[in-house]
Computed example of a mutant assay.
Amino acid sequence: MSFRSFVRSHAGRVTLTAIPVALAVSLLGAGVAQGAVPVSFSVSGSQFQIAASSLEGTGFSQYAGVAKDTAGKSHPVAIANIASATLHDLCQSVVSETPLGKVGVLITAGGGDRPASASDLQIGMTGLKGDSSFEHIRIGVDASTVNTQAKGMAGDFAQDADTVKITNLQQTAWSTQASVFTLTGMKLQLTDGSKQCF
């Protein structure tokens, strides 16, 4: 079975697994077609963590896709799009192996009454945990007809909603991007890799 066939035949399973957990969150606006994520860059060889005490967004969709790294390796992902999002107590962390050992980067933002915000947010993720609620959700729509600018492949399983809210968000991802990402009170730290978002 080819990788493309694997992704298409398992798209429903990936999505259904995400539904009870929370589905969603973070990255890219226009130009995503054919279920490819992302169009504008190759992903690194490291996944990263994103956490937030709460995420609230409008214009949500989610479907299966593929992220490719610079070596040409394909990684199956669940793609989540949010047209406009606010994130409270945002945390992002990644750990990389270097000749000097493990090196981590930890970024925090959006604390207190000054949440971080993003427009045209899209994320290519492999795991998501949290408590979620949706308004006017449609489950089982064709990925090419979701109500967001970014869309998936025709015939693939997808879902969309007018609004999404996720509390106690924990997410593992290959990619994240947005047309505008405002990180209020941003703090960046280099670590030994032992301190991550969750």
Rank of each mutant, 00 (worst) to 15 (best):
127 G>Q: 03
50 I>G: 03
85 A>Q: 11
128 L>A: 08
113 D>N: 15
47 Q>C: 02
112 G>S: 12
80 A>F: 01
107 I>F: 00
97 E>W: 05
137 I>Q: 15
96 S>F: 11
88 H>V: 06
114 R>M: 11
74 S>N: 13
126 T>C: 03
131 D>Q: 15
80 A>W: 03
141 V>M: 07
140 G>M: 15
78 A>Y: 07
87 L>R: 09
132 S>Y: 12
47 Q>M: 15
90 L>W: 05
65 G>H: 08
70 T>K: 14
89 D>K: 09
52 A>E: 01
67 A>K: 09
122 Q>S: 10
60 F>Q: 05
141 V>P: 11
83 A>C: 00
93 S>D: 14
126 T>D: 03
98 T>F: 14
90 L>A: 04
134 F>A: 01
83 A>K: 12
60 F>T: 01
142 D>R: 09
51 A>Y: 00
96 S>P: 04
83 A>V: 02
105 V>L: 13
104 G>N: 06
85 A>R: 08
116 A>S: 15
73 K>H: 12
111 G>Q: 05
128 L>H: 08
99 P>K: 03
81 N>K: 07
131 D>I: 11
86 T>L: 04
66 V>C: 07
117 S>K: 02
131 D>M: 15
100 L>V: 12
59 G>Y: 03
69 D>W: 10
127 G>V: 06
122 Q>Y: 03
69 D>I: 05
55 L>E: 06
97 E>V: 14
94 V>T: 14
115 P>A: 09
130 G>P: 09
102 K>G: 12
47 Q>I: 10
100 L>G: 15
78 A>E: 04
81 N>H: 06
108 T>R: 11
115 P>E: 02
72 G>T: 03
77 V>C: 08
50 I>T: 09
65 G>K: 06
140 G>I: 13
97 E>C: 05
65 G>E: 04
130 G>D: 13
70 T>F: 07
95 V>R: 08
117 S>D: 04
138 R>V: 11
122 Q>E: 12
67 A>Q: 03
113 D>K: 14
59 G>V: 01
95 V>E: 10
55 L>Y: 05
97 E>A: 15
123 I>V: 07
94 V>P: 05
49 Q>D: 09
123 I>W: 01
99 P>L: 08
121 L>F: 14
83 A>R: 09
79 I>N: 00
63 Y>E: 02
131 D>L: 08
96 S>D: 06
64 A>G: 07
109 A>Y: 01
96 S>N: 15
111 G>F: 05
79 I>Q: 00
79 I>A: 01
95 V>N: 14
59 G>P: 09
104 G>T: 03
92 Q>S: 12
93 S>L: 11
79 I>M: 06
110 G>A: 08
51 A>S: 09
111 G>Y: 06
76 P>G: 06
124 G>D: 08
61 S>H: 13
64 A>R: 05
112 G>V: 07
55 L>W: 00
126 T>N: 07
96 S>T: 14
54 S>K: 06
94 V>A: 12
79 I>E: 05
87 L>Q: 13
109 A>D: 10
80 A>V: 01
74 S>V: 10
84 S>C: 01
63 Y>V: 01
99 P>D: 10
84 S>L: 04
128 L>C: 04
66 V>G: 04
59 G>M: 03
96 S>Y: 07
56 E>V: 06
51 A>F: 00
79 I>T: 05
80 A>Y: 02
47 Q>F: 03
